[in-house]
Nucleic acid binder design. Sequence first.
DNA 1: TCAATAGTGTCTTTCAGACACTATGCT
DNA 2: AGCATAGTGTCTGAAAGACACTATTGA
Lengths: 236, 236
Amino acid sequence: MNETDFLKNYNIHDYEIPLCTVDIAIFAVIDDALQLLLVERLEHPEKCKWALPGGFIDLHADASVDAAAYRKLTDKTGIASPYLEQVSTTGAANRDPRGWSLTVLYFALIDINKVDTSKLNDNARWLKISELAEANLAFDHQQLAQQALERLQSKATYSALPIELMPTEFTLTELQDVFSIILGRKLPIKSFRRRLMDADMVEETGNSKIAGKRPAKLYRSTGRARTAMLPQPIRP
Amino acid sequence: MNETDFLKNYNIHDYEIPLCTVDIAIFAVIDDALQLLLVERLEHPEKCKWALPGGFIDLHADASVDAAAYRKLTDKTGIASPYLEQVSTTGAANRDPRGWSLTVLYFALIDINKVDTSKLNDNARWLKISELAEANLAFDHQQLAQQALERLQSKATYSALPIELMPTEFTLTELQDVFSIILGRKLPIKSFRRRLMDADMVEETGNSKIAGKRPAKLYRSTGRARTAMLPQPIRP
DNA sequence: TCAATAGTGTCTTTCAGACACTATGCT
DNA sequence: AGCATAGTGTCTGAAAGACACTATTGA
């Protein structure tokens, strides 16, 4: 049999294959807290429970898994160029009552100001990370969210990725506060600023922000935060 | 409709879903070179081309994706406790002529001496990493292998993971050579030894190895290499 | 004794942490 | 002037790199 004949006779439905989904842990800083976007499930199974945004890969709409994740993310937030990174893939026989199911987990970092709020309806809400441990989410989404959070926390120690959570212009004090929120502890101001400046993660915009006291210089991302690593991780 | 009825009516074959596979980049050091295990494809598509070991997830045999990867790895090598780590998931409409397909990529590090050679037959071979760039592998396996290699190289700079490629007892010079092979450059001897010792990645076995010249102390892994990070990455 | 490989002593460099200090604007 | 917040100067400490040095064996 040659390849053409082989493919002609090949029917995917002859085999038992898993359900395939993508799920996205979308993080934003809101009210000085790191928060995670959840949507309410409108259908069985796990109906009415809160879950990570996501769903089945659409073989016609989505050219790739990454494209599927982007589509789901844009559906929910309308953001033009969000930071989106694949975290891991979980698949098992018992994680969904419909059968053997596999999900590709992503995490996204967004600036809450850039969200198209018209896309967020009643069955969406933000969950503070401090409440994640006790949250009762659909399927294994609590563990998935935890995994994504650990990845973000880990990256915050050796890269400047949390810049992706900031608005276009921000002060270094604001950025340091975001790092502190993510890592759950105070950071030394001097080395924080030195690390970011020496590694050219940010550059001055020339503007400043006056909030009653001494004006703070405003910075913007140089874009290096998405890929470059800092020379040493923050010590524990 | 309640959940029980919903599940009763649910038929996975009503939906178009991707083909799901796992692929494993199995690395070993052989003849002072980092090498990658390949198997020849016996069936269409891409018949007779070389590919990463792997294949379809078996919904009955495999309780999870990780279990599927372990099964494939054990099938090929017979190794008891290989190091196996998930790298990434790639899925796209055009990567397999049979249709939209998704693969979960793993990488494994093995000690070539522990391989059950009876499991490796004619349609398996080792490819030197130096020849990977020009290799013409099935599907997108060349890129997948490259990704796995990059992960290994990256980890070699900030962890002691390459210990997983070593036999039970090894000298520090041998270990340093393996790091050099992976990273493709010489490393400073003093800081190499200090890093591993200070971080308790290895411990003396009490034995030594005589190879004509001064005997070298033999060490074994403490197991910390699988998880612990070294304080600073090796500088570029 | 010499060649070859194993392994150390110690100085320098890099970069994070500590902390006291200065700077700026509002009231 | 006093305050609160922004931001720096500079010392210390940890860990990597450089490199000359010593150690151990067989031939």
